[in-house]
Amino acid sequence: MTPEAFAGVLVIGEALTDVLVLPDGGEVARPGGSPANVALGLGRLGRRAWLGTHIGDDSLGKEVHARLADSGVRLTEGSVQDGATSSATARLDRAGSATYAFDIRWAPARSAVLPALAGMPSHLHTGSIAASLAPGADLVLAAVREAHGSATISYDPNLRPALLSGPEVERPRIENLVSLSDVVKASEEDLAWLYPTRAPEDVAREWATAGPALVVLTLGADGAHAYWRGGDMAVPGRRVEVVDTVGAGDAFMAGLLSGLMTRGLLAEGPGPAPGKQARQTLHRATATPGATPELASALDLAAHVAALTCTREGADPPTLAELGI
C-alpha cells in the first residue's frame, strides 16, 4: 500500500471489551478501549481512520471489529490474532464515574503498526495502555519515532495505574512521547498520579514548552484548559444530564483532532510528508498569547463531542449529524 492510499489518521492502541457494572449491580458488555474509542469517534466525525491494534479472533473480537467497521474505521493488517480479546471492567458509581480493572494482553504484531514504521499515515495518534504496557509499548514508541518525520502526532497518556509501575519508572517514557507529539491531552488524574508533588496545570504548562504545540488538561465537568507556548485558554464544560463518563475523554480527543484537521492545524490528506507543513501551521497558530479563531473552534468542538458522549451509556461518541454539523 502506498502512503497516498493510506493517507488519513492511524490510531495505534488497544481495543477491548468494556464490561460496565452498573450501580444496581447489572452488567452491560460492549466494545471499547481508549485508542479504539478515539478511532471510532474520528470515524463518526467523517475522518478516514485506521486502527492498528491487537484483538482476538473470538466472538468478542468480531464484535469490536464490526462496531469499528460500522463507523468507517478499518483495521490494519495483523491487528487480529489467534486467541482471546482483552477486557476491562468499569464499575460505575451513582454519579456515573468509572473505576477500572483489566484483563489485557498488549502484544501487537509488527505488521499491525507497519504503516507508521513506513511513514504512511498523515497523522498518528496513540496513548493509554498501548503506550505503557509491555511487550507492545516499545513497538508503539518506535512507530511514533518513525512517523514523526512525515506525520503530525498526538498522544493521550490516559494512565491506568493498576497496570503500571510507580510514577518515577513511567515518567521518562511518557515524557519522551510528549516530546515527540504535536498535541497532547491529559487529565487532572493523569498528571496528579505522574507528578504527585506538583500542580497539574504547572505540568501541562511545562509540557507545552517541551515539544508539543498544544497541551490540553481536561478537568471533568469543569471543562478543560489548553496551554501553548504563547498563552493559554479555558474551555468551559457543557452542562448536560450525565448518564456516565465512560469514553468522554476519548470523545474529547477525537473532537479535538477532527477540529484541528478541519482547520489545517493537523495533517490528514495525502502528499509528501504532509505532517511537516501542518506542524508549522499549528506552531504558528500557538505562537501568540490569544487563541486564534481556528484553535478556539477546535477546542469548542472537543467539549461539545465529550458532553454529548456523557449523555448516553458507555463510549458512544456522536456523529456529525448528531452534532448538527
Rank of each mutant, 00 (worst) to 15 (best):
G33T: 10
L217K: 02
G41S: 09
K276M: 12
T53M: 08
T309C: 12
H54E: 12
V235L: 01
A90T: 01
G259Y: 01
N158H: 04
W228K: 03
A130E: 03
A36K: 02
T99H: 08
L20Y: 06
V113R: 00
F102M: 09
A15N: 12
H283T: 11
R198L: 15
F252H: 11
E201Y: 10
H65Y: 02
V19K: 00
T245F: 08
Q277E: 15
L141Q: 12
K62C: 05
S258R: 07
W106C: 00
T99W: 03
A137L: 03
E168I: 00
G223A: 10
D300N: 14
R110S: 11
R229E: 14
T89L: 09
V243L: 03
P157D: 06
A101E: 15
E77M: 01
A147Q: 05
A298L: 05
A291Q: 07
G25N: 11
G72F: 07
L139Q: 11
F6S: 00
V215F: 06
W193R: 05
T126S: 13
R229H: 13
G13C: 11
G43L: 06
P121I: 11
A147C: 10
V242R: 07
V242W: 10
R238A: 14
V21W: 01
E206Y: 01
L194S: 02
A134M: 12
Q277H: 13
N37W: 05
L308T: 03
D103H: 13
A254R: 03
L260T: 08
E27H: 09
S79R: 04
T309F: 08
L141N: 00
S187A: 14
A109D: 14
V240A: 07
E4V: 13
G96D: 12
I55A: 01
P196W: 11
I55Y: 02
R279V: 01
N37C: 04
T126A: 07
G43M: 07
A98D: 10
E322C: 05
A90S: 08
A130P: 08
I104Q: 02
V64F: 01
A69W: 00
S79I: 09
D70A: 15
G271I: 13
L40M: 14
L295C: 10
A254E: 08
T89Q: 13
A248G: 04
G231C: 08
T286F: 07
N158V: 12
R48D: 13
V144K: 00
M233I: 00
T286N: 04
L40W: 07
T152L: 08
L16H: 06
V242Q: 03
S297M: 04
S87K: 11
S181E: 03
L177Q: 07
L51Q: 06
D182E: 09
A36Y: 08
T126D: 02
A254M: 09
L260A: 01
D250H: 04
A273D: 15
S150N: 13
G33E: 04
A302Y: 05
L159P: 02
T319D: 10
W193Q: 03
G56Y: 06
L141E: 14
C310S: 06
L217P: 04
A112D: 02
A143H: 04
H148N: 13
S165W: 01
S79C: 10
P318M: 09
A134N: 11
G230A: 11
V9Y: 12
